[in-house]
Amino acid sequence: MSWLDGIRAKSISVLQINAGGCTGCTRQFQAALLLDSGKGITLTGNPRHADVLFVAGCINNKSADYLRQIYEKMPSPKAVVAAGTCACDGKLFRGEDNGISTLDEILPVNAYVRGCVPGMDEMLETVINVVEDGYKEYKDG
């Protein structure tokens, strides 16, 4: 971890997008920010100010376009985190031809946080690790 990545990890602006789901993951993440381990992470509604795009929920054709537009507006370096089972692999809602995509079909994903709903600490750790590691792409398998 370089000193710059260390500083970046101490001030992370997260843009949450609920692409179409139960909102459980995004609410869980908002609650997690009140924990001490969420120190330095703030939510933003503006892609220009965001460092991490935190996507939850099932992604359909309509939300996929918006996600691409939002991603393009974020200044580099930037990271994408897929949170929850819906964004990671569609799971239950992914039929053969129902227009539901996984996040890695739409955007380059840096990290996945699996689970329904994922744990608070896992989500915070993932967001911090992605930035500390210099926005490198890594997968949890």
């Binding site: 710059l4 500083i7 970046r8 101490k10 001030s11 920010l33 009140l34 924990l35 001490d36 969420g38 120190k39 330095g40 992470i41 703030t42 220009r48 460092d51 393009e72 507006k73 974020m74 200044p75 580099s76 370096p77």
Partner: peptide, 24 residues
């Protein structure tokens, strides 16, 4: 209580972070 946790010198961190990013 109830406020987001932050580092004491977070405004400085934020400024350094902004300068390390690109413009689009």
């Amino acid at each position: 209580p109830g406020q987001n946790r932050s580092y004491p010198i977070q405004p400085i961190y934020r400024l350094i972070k902004h300068f390390s990013k690109t413009d689009l």
